[in-house]
Design a protein around this nucleic acid. Structure first.
Lengths: 139, 139
DNA sequence: TACAATTAAATTGCACACAATCTAATTGTA
DNA sequence: TACAATTAGATTGTGTGCAATTTAATTGTA
């Protein structure tokens, strides 16, 4: 039996490396928009629905308040979002897109295509990969 | 044409989520060994070859000195590795396993199996995933 | 042999990521 | 209605991850 504690035998290591590679390919593209990758994910969630609570964003992106609170404050400082505590339930903080945040969507439109080109990926490759991960994750 | 800036259309997001999921499944298993996932990767590299430079470890794991230097210091503090500056070339720091570090391999032997069980993954699933990522990454 | 270029780590600074805890507000229920 | 339980965010602390810079050592070359 092969030694499973061998880096070349690891299956999770390539996933870990690939995820880092993706983010590093996004970095220069997103830098032009003053966004990091997690911030870009938040923007995508907000472009779909312009007002959401911290919790709703966190559920969609699988991030907790310990990550999101400071991240959203940085995005507020860059004037992409507003943070307002709900008057109906004061525990809740509503995140809304600013005009600047909405406008950023146009600039971001070319990012998905640019990324695929940068990584030299085909639509087919990505679909196969995505479907396998979704299939595995769903178990 | 579909809106590519839609979280559900993203291919990279599932990879990012899956990588985080893997690490979170490793966490409780590795905690018993007092290791984090990146530290576990370093240990695997060292179990293969008990003396390596910071650079060699960094190349294998795709991590730079900004990440590795403090990480290795934490591992030194836990007495899993020794850090010794080379006498031949004083720019180089050699990392070696301590006896405690070598012994940890026995305890770690069950981790790969436990992880697959925890994530409910089959060998087939993982091989397919690994091969696709390697194929895509190699382009 | 001087000395510029290169190399290996370390350092600094910023931004996640997450566990654990805390605070304040709301809800459920006796 | 009191009041315990729950909920939403914020905070604290630790550990990556990486860009940029720094320091010290070594190498290449005029």
């Amino acid at each position: 039996m092969k030694d499973q504690l061998h880096i070349s035998e690891q299956v999770c290591f390539p996933v870990y490396l690939f995820a880092k590679e993706i983010i590093s390919q996004y970095r220069p593209l997103l830098e032009a928009l003053q966004l990091t990758y997690p911030q870009y994910l938040v923007m995508m969630v907000l472009w779909e629905c312009e007002e959401q609570t911290v919790n709703q964003i966190g559920e969609k992106l699988q991030l907790d308040s310990g990550t999101l609170t400071p991240l959203l404050k940085r995005m507020e400082h860059k004037e992409f979002v507003d943070r307002k505590r709900s008057t109906i339930d004061e525990r809740i903080v509503n995140i809304t897109l600013t005009e600047k945040g909405k406008a950023l969507k146009e600039e971001a439109a070319s990012i998905p295509g640019q990324l695929m080109e940068a990584m030299n990926l085909s639509v087919e490759d990505l679909l196969v990969l995505k479907n396998i991960i979704i299939k595995i994750s769903k178990k």
